[in-house]
Design a protein around this nucleic acid. Structure first.
Lengths: 341, 341
DNA sequence: TTGTAAGCGTTATCAG
DNA sequence: CTGATAACGCTTACAA
């Protein structure tokens, strides 16, 4: 075992000197150019391995005008879905020699604009973005494509921006799954607790719910549907409205997001809903929090956030590598799974 | 408003040509060299602003042999503490022009070694690491310092490695706070539920507990202390052992980590502990999960993960910038707060 | 006060 | 098959 070389960085030049060859030959050998003699290649490779040569990324990046940095903008890193999706993105990016800059918009449009501009200045090679719930104008994101930098929208579907690359979880399918599951358990009065109307998945999920009802021959009732935001107050109001008609109270609940479902259940228990223990519910998320709940939902929709993240970066890298043309707009869906607790 | 320049990257050379000056003058002007004429500076600055010039990072990095990448190794990104601490690190790093690579050891020693080697190859400018609970050998981390790359240990205190830079939450103080709070509420039988014995903070927190008892003149009882791991089974065993003596059952509980506390409380409720509703408890974490619990702890120790992360990267950047000598080993503590629910 | 030139580590082009 | 050279964008002695 050699000593660790303290301050002599192993470069092509260094290898070349040791081997009494030119820098360019060494470079070509390492990059497996067909023109290079096999024996020469072997010698170079061996020394490179022995000295633990690592090509200098900055030099390469400078050469081919890249940063190998992917920008990510998402609402909230602490959110369970985004957190897991980040993991999928990071893993994949790292494996392909890319680094990742993560930034949070906190679901504010202005912040999203600021972050976008910052990432543009950073000259990221590509952008993955889950837009804020208030984003309707896309100038700050469109400028990336105008500069030749591909953008992939993920998780949050931008309804006002049709010409773009999208990757998200199949809310329709997940919602259908959840609703069908509850129907199969004998429920007729199934309520749907939807998310912010500004966010597209709210409606996708609603459609899944409706379709499952239809397919089972259960007629849809308007008063079994309510919408809420990400905060508790709205949720309480929404859940109240669902249970306002004491003759027609739902016996089951499909919710667009688990924390919201938990808020709702907590409220129902608090007010002492007469048949609380009979209510069965399914939410999107499958958060580990379920293990700690006194009255957990009966099942969860697992959204596979890592998969969504991975598909997003996979697509982005293909766009960066021009394997897919930027104008050839893609739409990728990742299916959900039902997990029974 | 100009058109967006599609493919002409704004470089020093480009500015220089526009201004009919040399590249070096432009560079110096932008870097505010005193030798440059004020008027010249002004002209340069103005054009730079107008054209939205951004210096090419790769070129700068190449020049001063840096990557501006900070490596992070931690056990688990989904953990609430680490998740929040990452946020503190990222924010600070970004503000100072550094990027961050996050990698997870999943508390496995071998994985930690692999990740360390990977990050070494990536030539990170510095490393922030929360060691796995099984890490006792530090070769894989020591090699960084040998290569001149500073390392900051955070959150997990490496007891076997004294000569290193450390940043962590003040478990002693937090634990003292929690215990004193329970004492002040009249409890005499306060149990301590500690973490893995391999992890140093387990013991720091224990000391805080003991000291608070001592200062209140309460005698310590061995059977009021139990240790567990991060998994449920161990926790059940530990909690059982605390409540085994029916005459001397604890009335309050200090736990090293909230999820573990929740497991414990869940178990106690499940077995129908006779005075369950009277038990008061405090855990480390202050996780939002508390809002959803039927029987939440009475207070939490807020560890300020962002602060810990920020202190870690702040120290690391000082080491990278040679503001602090690498051999001048630092130890930084971040205090906890008691949050009453 | 400004400009010239070398160098950071790679790769690509063109000669040999 | 191998080598010299230029170029990527920036900083910094050193010259002018």
């Amino acid at each position: 075992m050699e000593k660790l070389n303290k301050h002599v960085p192993i470069t092509l030049k260094f290898l070349a000197e040791k081997l009494k060859m030119s820098v360019s030959t060494v470079s070509k050998a390492l990059n497996n150019y067909p023109s290079i003699n096999d024996y020469t290649k072997k010698r170079v490779l061996e020394l490179a391995k022995e000295l633990n040569f690592t090509p200098n990324k900055s030099a390469i990046n400078l050469k081919d005008r890249k940063t190998r940095i992917i920008g990510i903008i998402l609402p909230n890193l602490l959110d369970y879905f985004f957190n897991r999706s980040i993991y999928g993105i990071e893993q994949f990016a790292m494996k392909h020699g890319y680094n990742v800059i993560i930034s949070q918009s906190h679901d504010e449009f202005e912040k999203e604009v600021t972050l976008a501009n910052m990432l543009l200045k950073t000259c990221v090679d590509g952008l993955i973005v889950a837009i804020s719930q208030h984003t309707q104008n896309f100038d700050h994101l469109d400028q990336f494509e105008r500069m030749g930098t591909p953008v992939v929208y993920y998780t949050r579907n931008p309804s006002f921006n049709l010409n773009c690359h999208k990757v998200f979880g199949n809310g329709f399918q997940g919602s259908y799954l959840a609703t069908k599951f509850l129907i199969d358990r004998g429920h007729k009065k199934i309520a749907y607790l939807g998310g912010p109307k500004m966010i597209n998945f709210t409606h996708d999920r609603f459609k899944g719910y409706i379709n499952a009802l239809n397919d089972a021959g259960i007629s849809f009732e308007q008063n079994l549907v309510a919408y809420t935001n990400f905060d508790n107050e709205h949720t309480i109001e929404a859940i109240k409205s669902l249970f306002v008609d004491t003759n027609e109270m739902p016996t089951a609940l499909v919710a667009y997001k688990e924390p919201i479902l938990f808020d709702a259940l907590k409220y129902l228990k608090q007010i002492g809903h007469p048949r609380f223990s009979e209510i069965e519910s399914v939410g999107f998320g499958n958060t580990p929090l379920i293990n700690y709940l006194a009255d957990p939902p009966i099942a969860s929709i697992e959204e596979n956030p890592e998969g969504v993240g991975e598909k997003a970066i996979e697509l982005l890298l293909k766009l960066i590598g021009k394997e897919i043309e930027m104008e050839d707009y893609q739409k990728v869906m990742v299916n959900c799974k039902l997990v029974i607790h």
